[in-house]
Amino acid sequence: MTGKTHIIGGIAAGLAFAQITNYDPVILLGAGAVGAVIPDICHGGSKIGRAFPLVSKIINGLFGHRTFTHSLVFLLMAAYLFHTFLPNAALAAGLLVGIGSHLLLDMATKNGIKLFFPFKFTVRFPVTTKTGGSAEHVIFALLSFLAVYFGFSAFDFVY
């Protein structure tokens, strides 16, 4: 998936998570968007990879793309670090929800992810799409709709 799809996915996931928690939806919205781009630090051409090129190059050299940073091990390590060092539980939760949304979206691509890294097998959904393809545009539109829907609910707007 492209960066914009990951970002809207993180926003939708953060706002959906706001429906079942008492966390501030604004924090979940922002943290979900940021968390959704974190796993692609392993790819130098990604939004976060371009922002942190040295870190991206090191992680890619050690692990490659869609391996460690797209795994449950990474998610658990991030959970530990966020809950230990971040001062706000909503921020930590939102970042984790964003990372989770990223993993799910990349499982919908033909290349899939190494969800159970260090094991080498690839996990993907039975029906997949090509990154940047027309199906991704449909996914982006659906996630945009969900973000608006959950946003109205999270911010208690009157319908």
Rank of each mutant, 00 (worst) to 15 (best):
142 L>I: 08
149 Y>C: 00
81 L>V: 09
96 L>M: 06
114 K>I: 08
68 F>I: 04
150 F>I: 02
64 G>S: 01
8 I>M: 03
104 L>Y: 03
12 A>F: 06
29 L>G: 01
141 A>I: 13
134 S>Q: 07
8 I>P: 00
10 G>K: 08
74 F>S: 03
102 H>C: 08
58 I>T: 13
114 K>W: 14
22 N>M: 10
93 A>K: 06
43 H>N: 14
157 F>V: 12
112 G>D: 06
134 S>W: 14
77 M>A: 13
64 G>M: 03
125 F>R: 03
33 A>R: 04
42 C>A: 13
118 P>Y: 11
139 I>M: 03
104 L>S: 01
47 K>T: 15
155 F>V: 07
85 F>V: 14
130 K>E: 15
149 Y>R: 00
49 G>T: 15
112 G>C: 03
114 K>G: 08
95 L>T: 01
154 A>K: 06
13 A>T: 15
13 A>F: 14
76 L>M: 15
29 L>W: 02
81 L>F: 08
47 K>S: 11
131 T>F: 02
6 H>W: 09
139 I>K: 00
144 S>E: 01
31 A>V: 12
152 F>Y: 13
99 I>Q: 04
95 L>F: 00
47 K>W: 15
140 F>S: 03
135 A>T: 15
16 A>V: 15
21 T>H: 11
34 V>A: 12
10 G>C: 13
151 G>S: 12
58 I>V: 12
156 D>S: 09
112 G>P: 06
31 A>D: 03
88 N>I: 14
124 R>Y: 12
86 L>R: 12
82 F>A: 15
